[in-house]
Design a protein around this nucleic acid. Structure first.
Lengths: 211, 211
DNA sequence: GTCTATAACGTGATAGAC
DNA sequence: GTCTATCACGTTATAGAC
């Protein structure tokens, strides 16, 4: 009974263990600060298998990077493309989905933004990202609401900056926020739970501000 | 007249040129991705001088890091500690100051947040950061305004998350925002200029939201 | 597929001449 | 103070045995 491995662990192939360790280390430390030796040791696999399965460190990173970008984008996709929900419901869906995701993967946003800065995506991949948002049901609804005057006139990108900023930014700036606010260990997580209810109310207020 | 160096450049000592190049490269690439050889070459100085003047790459980085953290914090300090201005004016000061700063140094926030994640500051330095905010005139004003009911009741850290999120976050997420919004090259900068006037109005609306 | 051993190179740092 | 030359080591990647 001192068997530490569970069924999942036993079923994992070497390439999956390597991928999982790469995911963990790249997100925590970034590309250059993570060595192939660290990944091999952390995964319990042989160093040479990394190149056998993935070709190179760079190709392994690209795979991890794209998987995570897809996960990050998927939060937008599912919240913004349901054509049965109203604008306000989509905002609530978005906020809850991202706070769920980032509670489990708090390093995800900083990893994505850092990686995008040094390693900008090719146009083809950007186009995917663009369609997820600009061609979403959300965008259609938003622009229609502006036009019929039910919300104030404001370019949708300002709206997105506010929504994503209020939801995602705290996870990026967490150490600084905890320092300047002298927050106790659990306080940050509690505040993010409070923000599930707060952000939608704030966003609605912003949509009605007279500019 | 084909002399490219100006007076400033001529007056710079070797240690200053190294520091300046380190500043440039560390902010763009981060600690591990920047080599001492890159810094030496970029500065036009000899590689050995880096260790002669700064002891090690790590000590050079610590110096750059603390200078930049001080610059970043100073934006908060000056905006929040003038005891002659009202709450709303302090918000406007804060927004303008950070948009000015980050227009010149767009990589600063990502550098700070990445560095703080992997290299958390010691308590003594955090205490400095804490006092800058928690003991500021702004905090006193805010808490008084909550108490007398002139703004809605909300822990000040939620307020800060919103203010800093709306102002600083776009610079962190810029590549992603440009991709999802399909923004033309100059559009981002124009939007940030628009936000100088928008954010204070939004913040005031948030302060009056009934929760 | 998996391993050991090693190649080929880049890194931070320093000894020692000037 | 400034330079060249070099050390000692860690890095990614691969050849070749099993």
């Amino acid at each position: 009974m001192n068997q530490a491995l569970n069924v999942d662990e036993l079923l994992l192939r070497p390439q999956d263990r390597i991928r999982r360790s790469a995911q963990h280390l790249f997100l925590k430390q970034g590309y250059t600060a993570t060595t192939t030796r660290q990944i091999a040791e952390h995964s319990g696999e042989n160093l040479a298998l990394l190149n056998y399965y993935f070709g190179s460190k760079e190709r392994l990173f690209a795979q991890i990077m794209m998987e995570n970008l897809a996960v990050f984008m998927d939060g937008m996709k599912t919240a913004f493309n349901d054509d049965k929900t109203a604008l306000e419901e989509k905002v609530t869906l978005f906020v809850n989905r991202y706070i769920d995701l980032l509670a489990l993967q708090p390093d995800l946003p900083l990893f994505i933004f850092s990686s995008l800065r040094t390693n900008p995506l090719k146009l083809s991949q950007k186009v995917g990202a663009r369609d997820v948002f600009l061609k979403s049901h959300f965008t259609t609804q938003y622009n229609a609401a502006v036009k019929d005057g039910s919300i104030s006139e404001l370019p949708i990108m300002h709206f997105v900056m506010n929504l994503v900023g209020m939801t995602v930014f705290p996870f990026v700036a967490r150490p600084m926020l905890e320092a300047v606010g002298n927050l106790a260990p659990n306080t940050f997580d509690k505040m993010m739970q409070e923000r599930r209810a707060l952000i939608p109310v704030w966003i609605e207020a912003l949509m009605n501000v007279q500019l």
